[in-house]
Design a protein around this nucleic acid. Structure first.
Lengths: 218, 218
DNA sequence: CGACTTTCTGTAACATTGTTACGGAAAGAA
DNA sequence: TTCTTTCCGTAACAATGTTACAGAAAGTCG
């Protein structure tokens, strides 16, 4: 774990004492695919070692929409957001695949950002990036047609899987997009009629990747 | 202007040299109601002295949605976002009312955030707050019915005006909400039939504030 | 003032997407 | 097998976006 701690982007700029504090408090956790990593409480600063996490917001009625993914080597500090005044959104994080993460308690992270300019700057940059992404999602939801968004998601997911198959149910696809299963089913049916995909229980096979990309719009 | 510079929340924690730098570069600008304050380029850090600004995103087709307002005494650093890597959203800012602002060039702001922990921490907190707000807007758009969102906006605008009259066209109301004029007209017509408001050219008079608040839902 | 222009609003028909409600098919469990 | 759960297909309806057009109010200029 000593080595893994160095993966934090700001590690090089910490003092020896700060490095000690970080090393002494960080803990490795493992999560199975689908497990809840963060929600509601102040989990702390998360560094993904292996696997992929997914951040999303959840409405009162249980509807989700995916905000962004967190890949290995990346950091999620929404889970430590209680450190910063004014962040009160209900962001949840779950394991998109089986994952191993390094977790720094929020208290330690707060102390670090109060003492280290590098940590503080890093926090600001990360917040800016997440804000940028949230605005991108908002723009997508408001201005893109649903077929483009679904096509985009299928291409993206197939990319993660490294092939042309997406192993997600209509329900799960809907959750990513902030909509309902029926709309996904309807649109997938159209896609199938157009020969873009073939459907099966629990998955979608992409037949015409180029056409889907075109539909996704850039 | 010397005094106005002290309005920056981090002013007290700056060194003498940093204060000098800030004072030497900040400039006061005045904007008429509706004027563009920021868009596209890297305007800098904005402190509102008088009046109110409005931040919004703009789609390619010209559709807007209001993200948040910036009141006197508050700061907008999206306009200085180029300072932070990774923020690439097209956020625009215009004068919601006639306004006077203090503008710090982004170069100076960047230098300050690299030297001052207080400025860096402030930036992070502000980013977190704006992110929180953006997620709130996203949640509203996805999960609230349109009548609730319109009612909420009317109540809010009436509050700004300090009465029961909202001097905005249907087109402008639509821009705030990220929708189209027709939807606003339709819904306002329903509201009028229900006796909640009375309509006139260029404005809406709220007849039953309590009912509107109830519709807005908390 | 009157004629013209612009802006704002009303309306309607239609397309898209969300809501509600079922029923059937596939996979897993007993 | 039989039962149960999960997943998918479909349909009718409601809500909202799109397109198109027309009239009313306000501004402009003669």
């Amino acid at each position: 774990m000593r080595g893994e701690i160095k993966l934090f982007p700001f590690y090089e700029k910490l003092t020896a004492a700060e490095r000690e504090k970080l090393a002494g408090s960080a803990r490795v956790h493992a999560f199975e695919r689908g497990a809840q990593v963060h929600g509601g409480d102040c989990t702390g600063l998360i560094l993904v070692l292996e696997g992929r996490l997914r951040a999303y917001i959840l409405s009162e009625e249980g509807r989700e929409i995916t905000l962004f993914r967190i890949e290995a080597g990346e950091v999620c500090l929404l889970s430590a957001s209680c450190v910063l005044r004014g962040l009160s959104a209900d962001v949840f994080v779950c394991a998109d695949t089986a994952a191993r993460v390094l977790l720094v308690p929020s208290e330690v992270f707060r102390e670090l950002s109060e003492s280290s300019l590098a940590v503080s700057a890093f926090t600001g940059e990360m917040m800016a990036e997440r804000l940028s992404r949230a605005l991108w999602v908002l723009d997508e939801v408001l201005n893109k047609k649903f077929d483009a968004r679904l096509a985009s998601l299928l291409v993206e997911e197939a990319g993660y899987a490294g092939g042309a198959d997406v192993r997600l149910t209509h329900e799960q696809l809907a959750a990513h997009l902030g909509t309902v299963r029926e709309a996904v089913s309807r649109m997938l049916k159209y896609f199938e009629q157009e020969g873009l995909v073939t459907l099966s229980r629990g998955g979608v096979h992409i037949g015409d990747m180029a056409a889907l990309r075109a539909l996704a719009g850039k």
